[in-house]
């Protein structure tokens, strides 16, 4: 511990509590606002305790459809965003683990060229290539589709590099033992590389899921239909410049709903993180 004296401990805990309050209070306040009627929210001050309209507000938002976003229920948005975030996370992991596998374990012509090609794309932000990508998506007829949302952002230099670094730490003897044991490239990948990468995959999944969940610019461009919107886009659309036009109680409900899936993913995957830290398998 930092200090042994009781006073030090009290101060340390006080600081921690203050920190937690600073982080949690806005979220709590959003939750409180999501359980009151629009009238209550618009008439300050907003109460500090939850109101009685929890069920009403949440069911309206989830299943009733929200006016400003074309009457689409928030449940549709949640499904859209989940599909996109899962697609991006899984797609990125699959593609990057396969390319890292090729680069590390196979000797083919131009291997290093390919590696550097992947590497330099790190320096290319999405915004730079967004117009050509958009044009390609239009030509392929992928506007307003899940494929259009997912495919253009699925390649990941970062994840490829991460897997590459991990694969490089796998001892050569292990690869050779597998060869002697009669494991071909596919068996080696499936039976040895994948199980050893479990914790890496879990960590990447969390990061990439949240990355996908919070995508803004690309979904904004590639979706026109209201029922293809993601929750982040819809949240932005729900807010009008005039306070009276904005259904604040539903905005608050949507905000609360928008943070639930990432939190669930983090909580579920936390077990794996700990596991990955405890067992240093190599």
């Amino acid at each position: 511990m930092i200090g042994s004296s009781p006073l030090r401990r009290v101060i340390a805990h006080l600081l921690l509590v203050v920190g937690i309050l600073i982080v949690v209070f806005p979220i709590y306040y959003t939750f409180v606002a999501s359980t009151h009627s629009l009238q209550t929210i618009l008439r300050p001050p907003l109460p500090l305790l939850p109101g009685d309209r929890f069920i009403e507000n949440y069911s309206t938002a989830l299943f009733g459809g929200v006016g400003r976003i074309g009457g689409v229920p928030v449940s549709t948005l949640l499904i859209n965003t989940t599909v996109m975030a899962l697609g991006i996370a899984i797609g990125k992991i699959v593609i990057s683990i396969l390319s890292a596998y090729a680069i590390v374990f196979f000797r083919f012509p131009l291997r290093m060229t390919f590696f550097w090609l992947i590497f330099i794309t790190l320096m290319l932000p999405v915004e730079v290539r967004i117009l050509p990508t958009y044009k390609v998506m239009v030509d392929l007829g992928l506007i307003d589709t899940y494929a259009g949302l997912i495919v253009p952002i699925i390649a990941s230099a970062t994840a490829t590099l991460l897997f590459r670094q991990f694969f490089l730490t796998i001892p050569g003897e292990l690869v050779e033992a597998a060869r002697v044991d009669g494991a071909g490239p596919f068996r080696f990948f499936k039976d040895i590389l994948l199980p050893l990468s479990r914790t890496n995959i879990a960590a990447l999944f969390v990061i990439l899921f949240i990355y996908g969940w919070t995508q803004y610019l690309w979904p904004l461009l590639v979706t026109n239909r209201n029922d293809m919107n993601t929750i982040v886009i819809a949240l932005r659309k729900m807010i009008s410049f005039a306070d009276a036009d904005t259904e604040w109680h539903l905005v608050m409900v949507t905000s609360m709903l928008a943070i639930v899936p990432p939190i669930v993913v983090v909580l579920l995957m936390q077990r794996w993180f700990v596991k990955g830290l405890v067992e240093t398998e190599k």
Partner: peptide, 15 residues
């Protein structure tokens, strides 16, 4: 049809 014993054993750690 050979079998090899490696210096660092090279056991599959997850099995």
């Amino acid at each position: 049809d050979i079998a090899m014993v490696f210096q660092n054993y090279a056991l599959y750690p997850h099995m």
